[in-house]
Simulated assay, not measured.
Amino acid sequence: MTKIRIAIQKSGRLNEDSLKLLKDCGISIDNGKDQLRAAARNFPMEVFYLRNGDIPQYLRDGVVDIAIIGENVLIEKGEDISIAEKLGFSKCRVSLAMPKSKEYRAISDLQGKRIATSYPNTVKNFLKDRGVTADLHIINGSVEIAPNIGLADAICDIVSSGSTLFKNNLKEVEVMLSSEAVLAVSPKISGAGKEVLQKLQFRINSVLQARQSRYVLLNAPNEKLDTIIQILPGMRSPTVLPLAEEGWSSVHTVIKKDKFWEVIDELKSAGAEGILVCPIEKMVL
């Protein structure tokens, strides 16, 4: 079977999250320390460990068929490359920041200012759409120090928790875009490669659905069963089984992780008892 070639970030959190996703998809990677290319043991796949900023060109040239990459990198360097899946991890935002001591009222305050960034295209397009012109200083590396050494009046960078900005006495003034890891596809992927990609996407979707859901088991008095079932947003409808104790039933269902506490509170108020919540490893719809 044709092997699909996937690029992932060489190091860092996105590397770790990407490898975990592949592992959760049941794909075992035979890679040693500092290896830049590795084969999967039980799936037709080769993994290329590349610098994040280089991945869009590798996709464009067809050196790799797919990649797990930050959406922000594609917006900056690969807007012509299609996205097959948004993966829901490695979330961040690309923001403009200024020293805390400087007053900021509106985007027009950046007119004619010096902005240090490693995302020049993103900044240029964002400012152009708002009628603002600025002097961009392209820096590959840590840009947070630029205002402190007089190199720039503001910066554009990735923000996750905001702790790096805080440490450098900076404040976030504009969020230009929100980003997460995505599965990107080369425009030169072969027909056989697309077939393997479909198999991979099936596994990925099963894992992502499971990550977003929780399996719930509870006991309910039969006289309150209808009310409790109406609260539960099951995949189709909850499974209801009689308990050994007369007048009681066991209810099983799946709920979305982001609705968890809201639903649990309603269930308790409706008379549910013995509520058990379990993570789900895979979920095939």
Rank of each mutant, 00 (worst) to 15 (best):
R5W: 01
S11I: 10
S11T: 14
G12P: 04
L14H: 03
L19A: 00
K20F: 05
K20L: 14
L21R: 00
K23C: 09
I27D: 04
D30A: 06
Q35R: 05
A38E: 00
P44L: 05
N52C: 00
D54N: 03
Q57D: 04
V64N: 00
D65M: 04
I66K: 02
I66H: 02
I68V: 07
E71W: 06
E71A: 11
G78K: 07
I83Y: 03
L87M: 06
S90D: 07
K91G: 07
R93T: 13
K102H: 13
Y104L: 03
Y104N: 08
L110K: 07
R114I: 15
P120G: 09
T122I: 15
F126S: 14
L127N: 01
L127T: 10
R130H: 13
V132N: 06
A134R: 04
A134N: 00
D135E: 11
N140T: 13
G141Q: 08
E144F: 15
A146G: 06
A146H: 05
P147K: 08
G150N: 00
A154N: 01
I155D: 01
D157L: 09
D157C: 15
V159P: 06
S160A: 10
S163V: 10
N168S: 12
K171S: 07
E174F: 09
M176L: 15
L177D: 04
S178Y: 14
S178M: 11
A181T: 07
L183A: 11
I189F: 11
S190R: 11
S190D: 12
S190F: 14
G191S: 15
A192D: 15
R203S: 12
S206T: 10
V216D: 02
P221G: 14
N222F: 06
E223R: 08
L225N: 04
I228N: 02
I229H: 05
Q230T: 13
S237G: 13
P238N: 06
L241I: 13
L243A: 15
A244Q: 11
W248V: 07
S249N: 08
S249M: 11
K256L: 09
F260N: 07
W261D: 11
V263N: 12
E266D: 14
K268E: 14
G271M: 04
G274V: 01
E281Q: 14
E281T: 14
M283K: 02
V284G: 00
L285H: 05
